[in-house]
């Protein structure tokens, strides 16, 4: 019996892990429209922030040269402490007046659960914005246009 129990436990554990891994996710198109600032391309990182205001997950990084990542100071602390593979969610930096449309994945369970999506931005030799835009991760938040405070003019989402 003990052997059977062990085997059962193992299966149960595997099942639960599989369940967690395949947690319900939805894809969204996310548009970042930049304002007409002067200067080089902006590095923008899109992160999921939990209800305590802490970083929970990196959703997308606009800017591919790792040597500039430390200019996104707050996020870089989080990223350095818990490095993850972000190759698949990295795009090019965006220059003033341009826009960037990318697909991000959001877990269904995080919506309307007190989470926020933060857009953090930095430009070489210019001001760094910890929170250029923050969009509450709610159904309304995802359907509205949210104005930015730094290099970003506004961001929009649409279900993919």
């Amino acid at each position: 019996m003990p052997r059977f129990f062990k085997l059962f436990c193992l299966f149960a554990a595997l099942f639960m892990i599989g369940q967690a891994a395949s947690a319900q996710t939805n894809k969204y198109k996310c548009m970042v429209q930049m304002s007409n600032y002067m200067g080089d391309g902006a590095y923008v990182v899109i992160s999921l922030i939990n209800s305590k205001g802490a970083y929970e997950k990196t959703l997308y990084v606009l800017g591919s040269d790792k040597k500039w990542y430390n200019s996104l100071k707050e996020w870089h602390k989080f990223y350095k402490a818990k490095p993850t593979n972000i190759n698949a969610i990295t795009g090019a930096s965006v220059t003033g007046g341009d826009r960037s449309v990318n697909v991000i994945e959001l877990e269904q369970s995080k919506i309307n659960a007190g989470y926020k999506i933060r857009f953090e931005s930095a430009v070489e030799d210019k001001k760094y914005n910890v929170s250029d835009v923050e969009v509450p991760l709610t159904t309304e938040g995802l359907s509205a246009k949210t104005e930015g405070t730094g290099y970003i003019r506004h961001v929009r989402f649409s279900a993919n």
Partner: peptide, 12 residues
């Protein structure tokens, strides 16, 4: 172009 491919992945 920038778009998504048939698998829903970013296409650049």
């Amino acid at each position: 172009i920038k778009a998504t491919d048939t698998n829903g992945k970013n296409l650049d």
